[in-house]
Amino acid sequence: MSWFIARRLLSLAVTLLLATVVIFAVLEIVPGDPARLMLGINATDDAVATLREQLGLNQPVLMRYLSWIAGMFQGDLGHSFTYGSPVAELIGERIVVSLPLALMALAISTAIAIPVGIYAASRRGSATDTAIMAVTQFGIAVPNFWFALLLVYFFAIFLRWVPAGGFAGWDEGIASGFRSLLLPAVALALPQAAILSRVARSAIIEVLGEDFIRTARAKGLTRRAALWRHALRNALIPVVTIMGLQFAFLLAGTIIIENVFYLPGLGRLVYQAITQHDLPVVQGTVLFLVGFVVVTNFLVDITYAWIDPRLRRRGR
């Protein structure tokens, strides 16, 4: 088990290291001089040169990469060109919006999808199953930001139940914070729930066809008991895989949804930073999100090993 975790951790570290190289390299080949972009078209060459010096842009590439990495280990991701504040601080301010949003969306999606998947699988081929599958087929096709627009129209403009957008901050009270995040979370969650319920359903149906289910039935278990006691846990692996992918997708997906709801989250931060060529912020946030994905994958792998005793012994 510990060997399994160690190997996963090592692979995690390697992926992260490669990711820093990629992120740095991509932003290195960005057309345009960040100093000039910051100061505007009318700035004098002298001013630009001074700023370049200040930002350390005149150092060799390798040096800049190494100092970026070195800073990272001290929690220093550099300073934003546009906001002037430390990138780490900006991420810290924004993650308190994006992370609860993604978690809420994941919770909603899972809470809907798993029961629906189990229900449909246990009544496979019935009219209900067919109807559920048709709805999910439709759900997969819905772009979440369009769904968000409809939600805003109906609940915020038409019914006036919730705010149409914006986020007052957690200081205003937990309840009001959650109210602001509710619609965006639902908009993110429902299309994901459609996917997850289909995955859950087909995973369960797949397992129900396994020999050991027949063995369980030959022991005298009812169809239902065989499903609950033998099929569900075996069907978890594909479900957990998709949940892991979805969490990463949801966190990154906030980049669009936060624009719809004018939420001051990580997605909006990175989007603005990209359009304003605020390189330190882009580097920092992208790396942060990549780190999140990689850690999520690691947790998913650990979950596999928890589910399946066969994986505890060996690597893969």
Partner: peptide
Amino acid sequence: GDDIGMVFQEPMTALNPL
């Protein structure tokens, strides 16, 4: 499982791996 028991061909897959 009480009055009638059954044994299948493929022992590798007949048991729940978990």
